[in-house]
């Protein structure tokens, strides 16, 4: 049985497009990446899965159950981490975690205690006094404490410092090993590349590519920005080159050793290597979103 099965799902907000004819299958036990730029339809897809909004066409199933008819049964087995976290003001973290557990008619004190320790969250604080990162940690524990079979995470790492991000993905990997299916939505390519086994790319409301991380590895491009002068010469794998006498900027997909050798011959004051924007990746690998793997 698939953890998530989406067939021909379409959602419009009035006349505005949300998603169009999305097909997606996430097998049970997968660590699945759902990647796309902001506004592509990631959250719309997730909100439809959770029954917060209703699709215009098509249908979605989680563990073989219909997302509209069996909403409560599904939600009992799902943990959800929203991209924007808001809690009831005036409550302490401890009370909020308890509220979440009792809405599920569960006693999750043991696991939530362990998670709070690992993520270093003080449960006596009031939720409105929490920093953005701590609020997110609270939301993470709400999503994890009842040990769901499926975790749906919408941009989970924004606001978390790198150490906490590592701890968070460590927890996710442990859960995944224990059999939890993880559906990770993100616009950060490296996050998906480093953690997921399968992924799908969404753009302008449609899925434009899907497959294993290996199949999608063609997206391992880097945006290279060099201050100084360098002659790229015959370097293979350079795209989108913008060059001025003091600055060279390009997207690179070739061999790293070749790049370093070429750069070492130049006169360089500074260099930055960054993940390209998703839009760039889509632009260069999938044309205007028409291609498919």
């Amino acid at each position: 049985m698939n953890a998530i099965q989406i067939d021909d799902l379409t959602k419009y907000y009035g006349k505005t497009r949300g998603i169009e004819h999305i097909d997606l299958t996430v097998p049970q036990g997968d660590f699945f990446g759902f990647i796309g730029p902001n506004g592509a339809g990631k959250s719309t897809t997730i909100r439809t899965l959770l029954g917060l909004i209703r699709q215009n066409e098509g249908r979605a199933q989680i563990f073989g159950m219909d997302t509209i008819k069996d909403r409560e049964k599904i939600l009992a087995r799902v943990g959800y981490l929203p991209s924007e976290v808001s809690f009831y003001p005036g409550m302490r973290v401890r009370e909020l975690l308890k509220l979440s557990a009792s809405l599920r008619r569960r006693d999750c004190r043991k696991i939530s205690g362990l998670l709070c320790e690992r993520l270093q969250l003080d449960t006596t604080r009031k939720v409105e006094e929490l920093s953005f990162g701590n609020r997110r940690k609270t939301a993470i524990i709400c999503a994890l404490q009842h040990e769901p079979d499926l975790l749906i995470l919408d941009e989970p790492t924004s606001g978390l410092d790198p150490l906490m991000q590592r701890e968070f993905f460590e927890i996710l990997k442990e859960r995944n090993k224990e059999g939890t299916t993880i559906f990770l939505s993100s616009h950060i390519l490296s996050e998906i590349q480093h953690n997921c086994t399968q992924a799908a790319m969404i753009r302008n409301g449609t899925i434009i590519a899907r497959g294993s991380m290996a199949e999608l590895s063609g997206t391992g491009a880097k945006r290279i920005n060099v201050r100084g002068s360098v002659d790229l010469g015959a370097l293979i794998g350079v795209r989108d080159l913008h060059s001025t006498p003091e600055n060279v900027d390009f997207l690179y997909t070739g061999d790293m050793n070749d790049l370093l050798q070429t750069l070492s011959a130049g006169d360089i004051q500074d260099i930055t290597v960054t993940e390209p924007d998703l839009d760039e990746v889509f632009l260069h690998y999938y044309g205007q979103g028409s291609g498919r793997i």
Partner: peptide, 8 residues
């Protein structure tokens, strides 16, 4: 969003 993503 918090309330309605619980099984109620």
């Amino acid at each position: 969003e918090f309330l309605l993503t619980h099984p109620v």
